[in-house]
Amino acid sequence: MGVTTGGTTEVTPVQAIGAAPVRGGTGRRALFARAAVATALSGGRTVLDTLRSAPPLTLRQTGPGTVHLVATAAGPLGGDDLGLSIDVAPGTVLTIASVASTLVLPGPEESAESVLVVDARVGAGATLVYAPEPTVLAAGCAHRMVVRLTLEEGASVSWREEIVFGRHGERPGRCHARFDTTAGGVPLLRQEFVVGDPAVDASPAVYGDARCVGTTLLAGPAFGTPPGEAVISAGCAVLPLAGQGTLVSALAPDAPTLRARLTWGETQILPA
C-alpha cells in the first residue's frame, strides 16, 4: 500500500474501497463502509502500511505516524454500518485524532440503528494514541458503538472516548456503547454505556445531572505508572484498574468541561 510517514512531499492516497450505498431513503443513503489503518516498521521508523478510507470514514495522514479521521459525509446516520480497523505493528507508534466532533443523526428509517465498530490491535512494544473529538448524540438517533481493543505484551495505549448527550438544549437519542480491552489475553476493562433512557440517565447512580460522559484508558509502559490509589476531583476519578492500566472517568455538564476533567485526570498518571 506504500503510504510512508516522515516524507514532506508525501501525498496520502485515499481510496474509497468497500464503500457502497446499501439502502435508499430521504437525505443521503445509508452507507456500508470499512476503513483501515495499519502501521509497519521500516528502518526503525513507523510507516503506514495501509490507509484505506471508506466514506464517511475518511483517513488522512497529517504527520509522521499521525492520522486524522475526516468526516466526508454527514453522520453516522441511522442505517449506516461503519467499521474501522486499526493495526499498530510491534514497535511502531500511531496517533489517531479527528478534526471535528461526530454528530450522530437519525436515519430516514426511524428504527434503523447506526453502527460503528472499531477493532484495534496494538502489537508488542507499540504505542497507540486514540483521541478523536466527542461523539454527539442528536435527538432521535439510535447508535451502537463497539470498541474491541487488543493489547499485546508491552503495548501502550491512550484511548479517549467522549459521549455528549445531545447538542445544546437537545434531548439525546439512544446510544449503546461497549468497550472491551484485553491485555496479553486477559480482560483489562469491559464497560458499556447506555444513553437515552431518561429514567436511568438522570439517576444519581449513573450520570446524575451530567450531559457528557468520558473516559481515557491509559495502559502500558509509554504512559507511565498508575497512581498507587485512586485520585479524585470534581466530576473526575482516576482509577487504577485491577490489571496494568488506569481509567480516567469523568462526568461533566458540557464538552469543554469534560475535556478539561479528562485532561486533568490524564496528568495524574506518573510519567514514564
Partner: peptide, 18 residues
C-alpha cells in the same frame, strides 16, 4: 465470559472513591 453485560455507572464509581 466477555459476552456478559458490563454496564458502567460512572457516578457510582465517583461516589465509592469519595
Amino acid at each position: 465470559w466477555e459476552e456478559l453485560p458490563a454496564h458502567a455507572a460512572p457516578a457510582l464509581d465517583l461516589l465509592a472513591e469519595q
